[in-house]
Design a protein around this nucleic acid. Structure first.
Lengths: 163, 163
DNA sequence: CCCCGCGAGTAAAGATGCTTTACTAGCGAA
DNA sequence: TTCGCTAGTAAAGCATCTTTACTCGCGGGG
């Protein structure tokens, strides 16, 4: 049986613009992600915190570098770091290059969070694959990747927590 | 030539979770949409205003109905309506059902905005289709529609302007 | 008939999470 | 030594939402 509406009732989603479809899909996945993350004990962390962890994973970064990667001002990044430090998710160490620089690095708690968050994201993707079929989901990923590359070239855009 | 990386350098996007890919694609399209809309003289309107126009198109609605469709409180919706009324995008008429109800309806200016915005969205989609191929883009639309239906059933989720 | 309660709408204050403006601190180079 | 660059911080401003608390109009039960 064909999944596409052929002669039956037209899918109302077919009338929506691509941008809306992307937005709806994103919002649905993200809401469910946040729900499960809160259930897992991370209700205090918003998506932007997870983005910060992503940006800091590996060798850490200065607050200003973090700001650039997140696409916000360095003041906003500084405040984020302060909160995360108070909650024990990052440490601020002496920066090898000296100056006023401080290197912000993840603690084990943040690394654990990244693992849990990643697990939930993969779980969501697996559930979608079960409904839509693994092949279709891989195709979706490929087409999204091409769309993104077509709009940005090689550089990856920052993912900001607001419209 | 195969588009998928087969033996060459792996696409860094292949490492990202589906949720991130959706978010990036959405944000890229939306940013470009906002840019062009501002260029077309609508710099004063944010995406949420366009969403409100969508929700009101046809027969209009009360502020409370609008609030529900946008997924915000009725106070927030009321403020939105006040702004839009001052700028001449909506009118508030007597509601046939009486009571305190006021029917919020679109003016011609709002209808024109919807046309311009729709044109830009279709333009963006056409450009993406030119890069990726019309078939691929249709496939993307179909897969997004299935993803959304898989998560919501028939009901369509509100599209809120924040994470 | 009256009041009572409900839903629509409004008003004001509060919360949040950014940006803007404006400063201080360390370092290297002219 | 002073100039200027960059990192970081502090405080205020601002946009946009929610919460709390009311007022208005109507219809129904006593």
């Amino acid at each position: 049986m064909d999944r596409r509406a052929s002669g039956g009732v037209e899918d109302p989603l077919a009338r929506f613009e691509l941008t809306f479809l992307l937005g709806m899909g994103f919002q649905l996945l993200l809401n469910e992600f946040s729900r499960r993350l809160a259930e897992a004990g991370y209700a205090e962390l918003r998506p932007v915190h997870g983005m910060a962890f992503q940006a800091l994973r590996g060798h850490g970064a200065t607050s200003s570098e973090l700001a650039e990667r997140l696409g916000v001002t360095k003041q906003a990044a500084g405040q984020l770091v302060k909160e995360l430090e108070q909650r024990g998710y990052v440490r601020r160490e002496a920066h090898p290059a000296g100056g006023r620089r401080r290197l912000v690095v993840l603690t084990d708690a943040a690394v654990r969070h990244l693992e849990v968050a990643g697990g939930i994201l993969r779980e969501l993707e697996a559930e979608a694959a079960q409904r839509a079929g693994r092949d279709d989901l891989d195709a979706l990923r490929g087409e999204l990747a091409r769309l993104i590359h077509g709009m940005t070239g090689e550089a990856l855009p920052p993912l900001r927590p607001v419209w």
